[in-house]
Design a protein around this nucleic acid. Structure first.
Lengths: 229, 229
DNA sequence: CAATTATTCAATAAATTTATTGAATAATTG
DNA sequence: CAATTATTCAATAAATTTATTGAATAATTG
């Protein structure tokens, strides 16, 4: 048929794009498809870390961590900067983070096993009378809340919820006298499954403060900010 | 320190969740991270297909296609139903499709190589004076457009843009007399890189009709509908 | 400038993924 | 019910990914 001859060029062009598309896409997905690399991404969504920093909080060896980091960097998921003989890695941009959170959100609701653990966690948080991001917003607007970032100081410095004060868990006990027992306190940390805020709630409640935890963490807040624009 | 003992249980629980999370997530991503499987997903986003249907439009052997389909099914990306001795596979649900399109959108803008081909394609479409989804909406509201779905009939039957008529490319030439040369026609197909609509525009323009193509396709329209809710 | 430190590199073995081959299964047709 | 058809299964070889090992590099410190 003549038609198929006429069609030949544009079809080839479509085919060429498709192949480039599927290859490129699968390379990106392959880079993501490893539990350790996902853990690294999760860590770096709190801020930049040196290779040493990553080795400390994962079970990876230096050489292995370095390899995984390079896979992520070569696929444009991470970027790095060198300061003296430390190399600091961080997430390449917010677009990646938005896509990553989209994948996580889907997985958590679709993978039955994860949904179960997730719901258990949510119930626990509810029992602790946690505050949602929306509630927090009204509380901040009404100015009757002290917002406490209980992550390590470096993570606070890299980025934090507007208006929060940095009170790393290590400093918590020695700073007790600085806080009012009248004003409501909200503590937040790395995300819904991070236990730092839970501990802060426990310790401060025992000492007679009015404190609750945020049910989400810094990365979720950041994404919400980005979506609002 | 006492603190680390107290902390032990909740930390373990967080760890347990995290590991389940990273494992589950990386399994899902591994299932996606293959060019052929991505091509299959792309095909099935137009509607269900039998194994034979997939073999015909890819370069895969039966056994190999079947294997890839099972990987996708076991990871809750596809579902299947059996009709006589044909097995029809389809995308498991719209949530997956939304996530998949999110990944594609990110990749296309972030992978330099893809962006280049993408822009070339976009320019070509613009040269053809293509219609956007928003423009189409106004045209439909004003009722002065004939919307033409030029994909195979089975894909139209599985789902199509509201108000479209099915005119598969094979039937196009014999149906010419059924259409008015006064009314504007918009043709659409599988997506921005599908060439079916381009051909329809070419053929009908040569025959004196007023026709343009939609710059997107059925899956993009469907997602837009879902997001609107 | 020798010693130290953080990171990367290169080689390798083990584990996993992939395509191919030929046989098996399960439903349908003559 | 034997033959046909669409799909799946099981085994295998090749390709890719991963963790480990020990050495190399590049910056800093005493």
């Amino acid at each position: 048929m003549f038609a198929s001859l006429i069609q030949f060029l544009p079809v080839m062009k479509g085919r060429e794009f498709k192949d480039a598309m599927y290859d490129g896409l699968s390379k990106l997905l392959k880079a993501l498809a490893n539990p350790y690399r996902l853990e690294i991404i999760e860590m770096l969504s709190q801020g930049e870390k040196s290779v040493e920093g990553i080795v400390q909080t994962t079970s990876l060896s230096f050489a292995n961590a370095s390899q995984h980091l390079q896979v992520l960097k070569n696929n444009n998921i991470l970027k790095s900067r060198k300061v003296s003989h430390y190399v600091y890695y961080s997430i390449v941009n917010n677009d990646f983070l938005a896509m990553y959170q989209h994948i996580v959100k889907f997985s958590v609701t679709e993978i039955a096993e994860l949904e179960k653990i997730m719901n258990r966690q949510r119930d626990d948080n509810k029992a602790l009378n946690s505050v949602s991001l929306d509630e927090l917003e009204t509380m901040i607007r009404d100015k009757n809340v002290l917002l406490m970032d209980v992550r390590p100081a470096t993570e606070y410095e890299f980025g934090h919820i507007t208006g929060a004060v940095s009170v790393p868990m290590n400093d918590l006990l020695c700073c007790l006298k600085d806080f009012s027992k009248e004003k409501e306190i909200v503590a937040y940390c790395r995300g819904p499954f991070c236990v730092l805020a839970d501990e802060a709630v426990k310790i401060l409640t025992e000492n007679g403060f009015k404190i609750r935890r945020l049910d989400e963490g810094y990365p979720e807040w950041k994404m919400k900010q980005l979506e609002a624009n």
